[in-house]
Write a protein that binds this DNA or RNA. Structure first.
Length: 423
RNA sequence: GUGGAUGUAGUUCAAUGGUAGAGCACUGGAUUGUGGUUCCAGGCGUUGUGGGUUCAAAUCCCAUCAUCCACCCCA
């Protein structure tokens, strides 16, 4: 039965058969976040467009082509948030969180919106989990944030992922480096692809990760960012690496990592999974020391990361990992005859009050149909109520896995289920 | 935004211009109170949508929408 309406392009429904996976992952993420003493922040789904134009960067693809913008009835210009960091920073500044205790470590799990062409692992509404560590430029926090991402993926059981890190320097080193890149690539301008010739002036670092073979070849001998770091940035980057080594977190330095959002400085990193096709970044982040000032706040260094739920789930499915058990009732009540049916209503209610997850079918009458329903519900126990049981104030309890069953006094039912469930 | 592939039942797929079908799933049943196995029965699907060609279109053509893949971008 095809209905009249369909989900908007690039969006999708998370159906009951999938939603428990979401719950499993978000619960794990919260656990890890709390383990590191991060606390949740929840910001609105839309913000003033200017927030993103100023933070993500007016020239970035995200702002230029991918933002869902709209005006409200008073003509105010808003955008559905395309990413999570800028809103957190906005909120931090607006609420003077630097004055509040325990507000420097924040996490979120929230939908983001980008008007991209949909593809595997790429959607127009997608979910990100992320953290922000605000207020310090100590490289220990860089290492801590990276460690958090690493432990999260590891705890989920992922095997096939790698960590790549880089330092893109502060604005000083970055300018020098851009100059050097332009100088280098200009020699080969004629051989570069059309896109890269364009990138060369606007954002020369982008040429480094072009996939066209000839550009790739030229990029191989391009000057490395690492040679252009000033002393501070170099020290910082070395410490990050040292701390990661001390925590036994494996990584490779990839000087070609470029971040698409303008606000990044110094440390940049990505967790990659090779089974995802073109959309292989499971999680990415970096330091953004300049962002607070750009948004009108005090000079406040910070570092964070964000990861995509959809890609994480794809990776886990690829590796055949468990998402925990699907929720199911503990007990399913089967009632035979009108009298028992009526009685089952209060029995079910009583069990639920006792925190025993219980279901029944008021619709089905035959024992067989009800047993089938009990089976499908994946309930641990089936509770059978018939004439015999009603007469003697008992109930037959059946273990659906082993097939064992026993007739017990109604008065002892709750206790019996609780004891058995614990085993 | 660019290029390519694909759209048939809930789902996976058949049907190459001549009556739309199968496996799985789903629902019911196989005499007196027992599920998972087995057997039987149950589908009026605008063949994504809209046009066109033809005596005749799921099938050929055009458009449109959607999905997938790649570019791009990034989570």
């Amino acid at each position: 039965m095809a209905g009249k309406y369909k989900v908007p392009r690039g969006t999708y429904d998370i159906l009951p058969s999938e939603s428990y996976k979401w719950q499993f992952i978000t619960q794990k993420f919260r656990e890890i976040a709390h383990l590191f003493n991060y606390r949740e922040i929840i910001t609105p789904i839309f913000e003033s467009s200017g927030l993103f134009e100023r933070s993500v960067g007016g020239n970035s693809d995200i702002v230029q082509k991918e933002m869902y913008k709209f005006k409200d009835k008073k003509g105010r210009q808003f955008a559905l948030r395309p990413e999570g960091t800028a809103p957190v920073v906005r909120s931090y500044i607006e609420n003077s969180l630097q004055m509040q205790p325990n507000a420097s470590k924040l996490y979120y799990i929230a939908p983001m919106f980008r008007y991209d062409r949909p593809q595997k692992g790429r959607y127009r509404q997608f979910y990100q989990y992320g953290v922000e560590n605000i207020g310090s430029e100590n490289p220990a926090y860089d290492a801590e944030v990276i460690a958090m991402g690493y432990i999260f993926l590891e705890k989920l059981g992922l095997q096939n992922f790698s960590l790549e890190i880089n330092s893109i320097g502060c604005s000083n080193c970055s300018q020098d480096y851009d100059k050097a890149l332009i100088e280098y690539f200009s020699q080969y301008e004629a051989e570069l692809c059309k896109d890269c010739r364009n990138r060369l002036q606007k954002n020369p670092k982008r040429v480094l990760d072009c996939k066209v073979p000839t550009c790739r070849k030229i990029a191989q001998n391009a000057p490395s960012m690492l040679d252009y770091l000033d002393e501070d940035c170099q020290n910082h980057f070395e410490k990050v690496q040292k701390y990661l080594q001390e925590m036994n977190i494996p990584f490779t330095v990839n000087p070609k990592i470029v971040r698409g959002l303008d606000y990044y400085t110094q440390t940049a990193f990505e967790f990659l999974n090779n089974n995802l096709g073109a959309q292989n970044a499971v999680c990415g982040g970096g330091r953004y020391n300049g962002l607070f000032q750009q948004l009108g706040g005090q000079n406040t260094p910070a570092i964070g990361f964000a990861g995509g739920m959809e890609r994480l789930i794809l990776s886990m499915e690829n590796e055949g990992l468990s998402f925990g058990e699907e929720p199911h009732p503990q007990a399913f009540v089967v009632a035979l005859g009108d009298e028992a049916k009526e009685f089952s209503l209060s029995l079910v209610h009583k069990l639920r009050n006792e925190k025993i997850a219980t279901d029944t079918s008021y619709e089905k009458n035959s024992l067989k149909a009800q047993m089938k329903a009990a089976d499908k519900s994946n309930a641990l126990y089936c509770l059978i109520l018939g004439d015999d049981e009603l007469k003697t104030d008992t109930v037959t309890i059946k273990n659906m896995k082993t097939g064992e069953q026993k007739q017990i006094p109604l008065a002892t039912l709750v206790q019996a289920i609780k004891q058995r469930t614990l085993v």
